[in-house]
Amino acid sequence: MTAKEKILYFIYLHRTGLTVTGLTLALVLFPLFEDNPYTLGLTNLIAIYVIIVVGLNLFIGYAGQISLGHAAFFGLGAYGSAIATVTFGLPAWPAMAGVALLVALVALLVGVPTLRLSGHYLAMATLGGNIVVHTVMLQWDQVTGGPSGFPGIPFLSIGGFVFDDEVRLHYLLWSFALLALLLALNLVRSGVGRGLAALAGDETAAAALGVDTRRAKIKVFVLSAVFASIAGSLFAHCYSFISPDSFDIFASTDLAIMVVVGGMGSIWGSLIGAGLLTLLPEWIDVFENYKDLVHGLVLVLILMFLPRGLMTGLYEMIRNRWVLKGQKNAAS
C-alpha cells in the first residue's frame, strides 16, 4: 500500500467516527461565526426535529413500518414536561425522564395491538391516534390550556447555568441531537440493527434468520416514541410556550416526509431531511403559504421515482452504477 492508499483506507475504515467528529467540531464552532439569533433559532429547531426523525427513521427505514402519528409522542413529551414542571412544580430533568418513561408505556400499549397491522392500516391507525391526542390537547382546557396554549414553561438549567438564549440552547439541543445520532448509528451497525434491516427487507426471511419480527417492531416503535418525547420536552423548555398546533397530523406527516427526503434507513439522511424541510419555507416564500401542498408534492415525487427516499435512493443509484462500471472495466 502506498501512503495515499493507507490514508484513504484509514478514512474508509473510520468513516463514521470521522464524520461524527467533524460534525461535532462544526457544531461547536458554529455560534462563533453565526450569531444571528434568528438563524440560530432555526438550527435549534432542526436539532429538535433531528432527534425525532432519527427515531422515526429507525421505525420506518429499519423496522420497515409506517407511522403518521409521531407528532403525538412529540406533543405528549412537550405537554408532559409542561404540566409536570408548571402545574406540579417538579424539577425539569427528572420530569423529562419520567415523561419519557410514561410515553414509552403509552407507545407499548398502543403498539402491541396496532403493530399487528401493516401498510395503509398502520398508517390510518397511527393517524387516528394522533388525532385523539391532538383533540385532547385542544379540549382539556383545565390541564392543557386548550387552543390558546400552555405558557410559562421554565428554561432548563444545570447548576446555576440557565439555557435561556439561542447560543446556549444551540449547545444543549445539538448535544441531544448528536447523542441521538450516535445511539442510532451504534444500533444500525450492530447485529440487532442488521436484524432490523432484514425485517425491513423481507419479514419472512428475517423470521427465518431468528428475528422475532413482532417484538422487534414494538421495541423500535417504543424507542422512537421515547426519542420523540425527549424532543418534545426540550421543545417545551426551549420555547417556554406550546400550543396544540405544533402536534397535529400535519406535523406528523412533515416528520414522515423528513424521513423520506433524508432516505429510509439512512441515519445521516435524517439530518438532511430535518434540515431541508425546516429551511425550505425560509428560502422560498411561496413555500410559506402552500407548505402542505408542496410537501405533499415532494413526498409523492420522491416515492414515485426514488422509493427508498431521496438521499438513500440517489446514493444507492450512484453506488450501484459505479460498481457495475468497475466490473465492466475489469472484464474488458
Binding site: V192, G193, G195, V211, V220
Partner: peptide, 14 residues
C-alpha cells in the same frame, strides 16, 4: 443474527 444479541439498549451503547 441469533448470536449477535437482542437488546436494543446494549446495541445502542456499543
Amino acid at each position: 443474527t441469533c448470536e449477535a444479541g437482542r437488546s436494543l439498549t446494549m446495541a445502542m451503547l456499543r
